[in-house]
């Protein structure tokens, strides 16, 4: 698996998530450590989309994470996961 730099993951995820937020009329700033799901900014519908996007884009299997969404709860958290999975592939 090719290693994707954390900065690239972050910028890609940020633009993807901001697009979803904008569609619900949420134009507030989005920082890397802002909570996405716990805060309620993203909901159950977004969760399915985000999980599938992370799965297809970075080869991370949600079932390997024990279906734990709190591990995708911020842009930084997602970047960490991608980094870990490229170091130790599942």
């Amino acid at each position: 698996m090719t290693v994707v730099p954390a900065s690239e993951v972050k910028s890609r995820m940020r633009s993807y998530i901001m697009q979803r937020l904008l569609m619900k009329g949420d134009g507030a700033p989005l920082h890397d450590d802002d909570l996405l799901f716990s805060s309620g900014r993203l909901d159950s519908l977004d969760a399915v989309e985000l999980i599938m996007s992370v799965e297809t884009d970075y080869g991370i299997n949600f079932s390997d994470l024990g279906f734990d969404l709190t591990r995708l709860d911020s842009i930084s958290a997602i970047a960490r996961l991608v980094e870990q999975s490229s170091v130790e592939p599942a």
Partner: peptide, 11 residues
């Protein structure tokens, strides 16, 4: 189910 699965994923 989508909602229950979401709540489950959030513990």
């Amino acid at each position: 189910p989508t909602l229950f699965m979401f709540l489950d994923s959030m513990h």
